[in-house]
């Protein structure tokens, strides 16, 4: 499998992180992925406060504003050149090389256009996320498995991200809205992840922004009527 992937196609790798823990993870993630997948270019995108301590000879980009995960992923997408991107959350250990290799193989073969891998989370953030987005995503025809706030591995075509607006928290859900359900794969990576500290206390802020963007995209695509969109937006503001 590894040999086949190395020879078949090339991807761009984006590792985003906001914490010190992530800094320690990056070296391990990079080495593991580079050994098994043919990578054209790699960028570390740091979206925490202060400067990122350069560990290796990987270009490190500082994304602004701080703690805006959606913008950090989009910044990485802007920097890389391959049509297929692998986006890894450097702040978590919730990834396996096998799952990344499988996802890359599926995207390179055209079997799927966007592959997301979700960790197990059962936090306040997940509950807030579901309370706001369950109805909207359901109406948009997005699979119920999109009901997780973040995905530790994202493999997909770069173009879906460059043409999608980002929210403070994420971009992957908004990119998924533009896909047919069969072109999207969401797998459970059975890894237990915890919420990053900067989210605590701001769960509603992050989720409301994401929900607003989802409604706007749905309205642009005529998936929902203007009345329905206004109803959603009112509900979001009132919460």
């Amino acid at each position: 499998m590894v040999f086949a992937l190395k020879s078949r196609g090339k991807v761009s790798l984006i590792i985003y992180l906001a914490t010190e823990k992530g800094v320690r993870n990056v070296k391990h993630i990079y080495k593991s992925i580079e050994d098994s997948i043919s990578v054209v270019d790699t960028y570390i995108v740091y979206y925490g406060l202060g400067a990122f301590k350069q560990l290796m000879d990987i270009p490190a980009f500082h994304s602004e504003p701080p703690y805006c995960r959606g913008k950090a992923i989009l910044s990485g997408v802007n920097l890389v050149t391959s049509p297929v991107i692998v986006v890894i959350n450097g702040d978590t250990s919730c990834f396996s090389i096998d799952s990344i290799s499988n996802a890359v193989a599926k995207v390179l073969s055209g079997e799927t256009l966007l592959h997301l891998s979700k960790p197990q989370t059962n936090t306040d953030f997940t509950n807030v996320y579901r309370s706001f987005l369950q109805d909207i995503l359901g109406e948009l025809g997005i699979t119920q498995s999109m009901l997780y706030p973040s995905y530790s591995i994202i493999v997909g075509l770069r173009k879906f991200f460059t043409t999608t607006p980002y929210s403070m928290w994420s971009i992957e859900q908004l990119a998924a809205i533009n896909l047919r359900e069969e072109a999207l794969v969401v797998e459970n990576n059975s890894c237990i992840d915890s919420t990053i500290d900067y989210v605590k206390g701001f769960e509603k802020t992050f989720v409301k922004d994401l929900a607003r963007k989802a409604v706007e995209i749905a309205l642009q695509r005529n998936t929902i009527s203007r009345n329905r969109a206004e109803e959603y937006l009112k509900r979001i503001e009132a919460a």
Partner: peptide
Amino acid sequence: DNDSINIS
């Protein structure tokens, strides 16, 4: 306004 686009 965006450094990632400036770099690209």
